[in-house]
Design a protein around this nucleic acid. Sequence first.
DNA 1: AGCACGCCGACT
DNA 2: GTCGGCGTGCTC
Length: 659
Amino acid sequence: MYVLVNLIHRCRKPLWYHVPLHLRERHVAIDDVVIVPLRKQTIVGVVVDIRVALSAQDRCHATKDVIAIQTMPPDRFYAVFIKKIAAYYQCESIYFLMRLRQFLNKKRSVECASELTHVGSEADATVHLTQEQQAIVEQLKISVDRNIFECSVLHGVTGSGKTEIYKALMHHTLSLKKSVLFLVPEVGLALSFQKKLAQCFSAEVLYGFHSSKTIAEKKQVWHVLVAQRPVIIIGVHLPILLPINNVGLIIIDEEHASHYQEQRHPKINTKDVALIRAHAYNVPILLGSATPSVASLHNVETKNWKLYTLSERFGGHFPKIKLVSLTDKKKRASFWISNELYMAIDDRLAKKEQTILFLNRRGHSFFIQCTSCSFIVRCHACSVSLTVHEHGTLSCHYCGYTMREPTLCIECKSEALVKKGVGTQQLENIIRALFPSARVARADLDTTAKRRTWEATMQAFTAGDLDIMIGTQTITKGHNFPRVTLVGIIWADIDFHVPFFNATEHAVQQLLQVAGRAGRSTPYSDVIVQSMTQHDVLESLDERLYRSAWYVQELEKRRLTNFPPYKRLVELELKHTNEETVHQDALELVLALENYVAVHGLDVDILGPAKPPVYKIKNIFSRKIYLRSISFQVIIVLYKSVKDHKRPSSLFFTPNPQQ
DNA sequence: AGCACGCCGACT
DNA sequence: GTCGGCGTGCTC
């Protein structure tokens, strides 16, 4: 017997292998995962065809033997699901299996890993719900019971207790012997949720599955899935691709987060894949957020998605929001701290209350420039300036390249080097100088290596051992600090002018998330929003007005500019080591696309080619082209007409791109 | 993806 | 004459 195997190796041609006698009893089938030799390596592949004997033309090579047939967790919908996402991302199914590679590889020894020994008391299963929460849970339970595909958006203002609803639904799903996929947009959140949920679920049903878990811990999950036990799996990207036969509910928390899209190609978006999975498995999916995405809210209007609202805070009250211009020099205590913010911080210190200072410094950041020749220290491999870090080093956010801070200008040898922009480190120094007696800490999560100190900072802040915490996006989500009565946003409009259709959406969501850290258990609290320019969005920066004011305005803007959710958008990215080559390829690709659209009379807009803001990463140049249409299927037809053209650059397809 | 093969430039 | 750059193409 022979099998045709698609290799996990970006080897485009499937190859024939012989199934030796001792493996025949395993009844190899199409879509089975097998381990086969290739040259001197052993690699994983998927069976795509089976023959009793090979014809003469197929047998031109001496076929090698299959080494093993891999035991996968049983999952009757898995093959169909993988085929659907392969069609959505216009790539081969094998790419998705590559993400699960470490579980498929030879080392079978780990498969019989011993059961974890559980320590600690049995978890307390009681969940206390408000009437508002209880009513929502009862509605959602019905779709879990009935096993039907249903999308629900849970719009719960910050501090309204969305987690309590998740908990109740998790209990219910487990009681039906079904599993829950619980997804959050970053590892730090996955860790803190696991801690929180461990108080009401035993370690036998609660599993984390993400990059900060060891391989042994992940193998443990694999083992549990093979055994088909009903479990809760918490993660970011990977869990949505696991074969789980008994999924009963998928929960996407912070569903607005752009982080759900992976950074490397194919740029899988966990939320989109989860929607496809829920549909393929006929299970309900719950999308929770204090600031639901425009796309999800629009689906409530047009696609019969359900919308549930938690409009009251569990404890505490909503903060008072104050807008302050940063441009008036006379009104500043320091360059980045307005008088209003200074007075407010001073007031909280006197009252022994806590302050969060938020600085969003993605992209433009803290760099070194020469004042005599205006040279900026840049990365040699990426098209970005190097960022100033502690201990006199400069490093690149994209490739990690690090160098010592120069004392002379590299270009003109002048000594007139200045640090420009604002960074959390610099802000910390300013705050320490302004408030020498305050206990100040910084919580930015640049490297995963710093996770320990980051957690320690979070804990100290929660316990009240700190007065002021300075941080970036990582402090915007999830955490509950009861003693915070002041949130200062240093530079609110920093991201408003990013050239992407949903730039303001992401900026507003982030600002509301961080503003929501204030007043979790106090009757009063303030948010001071500092900005460089006047912006009408900032005027209505109140989460209670999110749907009634901001969303309505933003939706109208999208309609007028022909962007999602009114049109479907796909990003094509070309990459090559030579900039001239990628530029030529992009021009030719646009011509080919325009030609096909004209000949076949398709209703598709072709935007670009554009040189992206960061056009070189690790010495690879990039160009982007956007395809826009009412119909995703028409975009696919158009893409298929050009994807296999011969060109030096590699071409990548990203549906529903998130800036 | 690796790894081998192969065709041109630099060097003992 | 040989060493080694990496461009091209194959892997059952």
